[in-house]
């Protein structure tokens, strides 16, 4: 999922300051799972805004709605009549959802979240980065542990000299990804695979090649 967290409320209040009627629009997919922007979190944020603005003596009319996904026009367009009633939309989707909606509207669409990474649930209330979307997956070579997103130096032939006691030198709270890779490949009896030196990765398939678009011609009409 895409993992995000709510912006500090001070920042949110500042961004909606000029408006007297807004829509807080939640997204019930990734950001609901990471408890940042689903129906409940959008409701809490709307409530916080109403209370803060009333306390400050500047009442605001806050509408609330949560859609299944903000990264698909079909869900966004179904709420068309709501956008006509407000001066701005405060989106609790990831940055993708904010941009998707912004492209459809003539009013400001403001982000309520900071979008952080693609990750998985580690335990209840904790999410960890797992993939950077490099476009050319190497998990087969690394025992299912991603060195692109989980090694601080994105090494493909690790570990570096700073790996100590299984921890990363960049952040001692983080496991060294290459220690994990070696442990895992040992357990899988595939350690010999790591003797092959990986050539420099072609980052053209990643963000370095500029913004990416993917098309499936066979589903187009």
């Amino acid at each position: 999922m895409i993992v995000a967290e709510q912006k500090p409320i001070e920042e949110v209040l500042k961004s909606i300051e000029p408006f007297d009627k807004i829509l807080v629009l939640g997204c019930n997919t990734c950001v609901a799972v990471c408890m940042a922007g689903g129906e409940k979190e959008a409701g809490i944020l709307a409530s916080m805004i109403r209370l803060a603005r009333e306390k400050a003596g500047k009442l605001v009319d806050v509408l609330e709605k949560t859609v299944e996904r903000q990264c698909d026009d079909e869900f966004l367009l179904a709420e068309k009549e709501l956008y006509d009633k407000v001066e701005a939309v405060l989106s609790t989707a990831c940055g993708v959802g904010v941009q998707q909606l912004s492209a459809l509207l003539q009013i400001p669409v403001l982000p309520a979240l900071n979008t952080k990474f693609m990750g998985g649930t580690k335990d209840h209330g904790t999410w960890s980065e797992r993939c950077s979307g490099c476009g050319d997956c190497v998990l087969e070579l690394t025992g299912g542990i991603c060195p692109v997103s989980r090694c601080a130096k994105t090494l493909l032939n690790g570990p570096c000299g700073g790996s100590a006691d299984g921890k990363c030198e960049v952040n001692p709270d983080t496991d060294c990804a290459w220690q994990l890779i070696i442990d895992r490949m040992t357990a899988l009896e595939r350690l010999d695979k790591l003797l092959e030196i990986q050539p420099a990765k072609n980052w053209k398939t990643a963000r370095d090649g500029g913004p990416r678009t993917q098309t499936r011609e066979d589903v187009k009409l």
Partner: peptide, 8 residues
């Protein structure tokens, strides 16, 4: 913590 941040 929320109340404190929103001035209550």
């Amino acid at each position: 913590a929320i109340l404190e941040k929103i001035g209550i």
